[in-house]
Computed example of a mutant assay.
Amino acid sequence: MKVTQHVHQLPVTTPTLYPATTTNVYVVTNGNSAVLIDAGYEHEVAHQAVIEYLANIGSPNVEAILLTHYHRDHSPGTKFFTAHFDCPVYAHPAEVAFIEREIAPVRIEHTLLDGDVVSVGGMELHVLHAPGHTHGCLNFWLPEDKVLFTADNIVGEGTTWIGPPDGDLRAYLHTLQRLKKYPASWIAPGHGQMIGNVQEKIDFFIGRRLEREAQIFELVSERALTVDELVQAVYRDTVHPSVIWVAERTIQGHLLKLVGDGRVSKTEGARYLEKK
Score class of each variant (00 low, 15 high):
G58V: 08
I51R: 08
N153M: 00
L173M: 12
N153T: 10
L142N: 05
H43I: 08
K180P: 08
V127L: 09
P93Q: 08
E42K: 15
G115S: 02
D114I: 05
D86M: 09
Q177T: 11
D86E: 10
L179A: 10
H71P: 07
C137V: 07
V45H: 05
T111Q: 15
W161M: 10
G121T: 02
V127K: 00
G58R: 07
V117K: 03
V62P: 10
P143R: 10
N139R: 00
V118W: 04
I99R: 03
T78R: 11
P88R: 04
E95Y: 11
D166A: 14
Q48A: 15
G167F: 03
T68C: 14
H110W: 14
H126A: 09
L128A: 07
V117I: 11
V155T: 13
L173A: 09
E44I: 13
L169W: 06
P165W: 04
L138Y: 08
V118Q: 06
E124T: 13
H126C: 10
A49M: 11
N153I: 13
P105G: 06
I108N: 08
E102F: 06
F98V: 09
P131Y: 00
I108D: 04
W141D: 01
V147H: 02
A94K: 15
V120G: 03
I65Y: 05
G115E: 03
A97W: 10
I65G: 10
R178C: 01
K146P: 12
I103S: 07
L169T: 12
L112M: 13
L112W: 07
A130N: 06
H92L: 08
D152S: 06
N139V: 04
H129F: 01
L169K: 10
T160C: 14
D73V: 15
G115P: 02
L66G: 01
T175W: 00
M123E: 09
A104D: 11
I162G: 11
V155Y: 03
I51M: 08
N56M: 07
I51A: 10
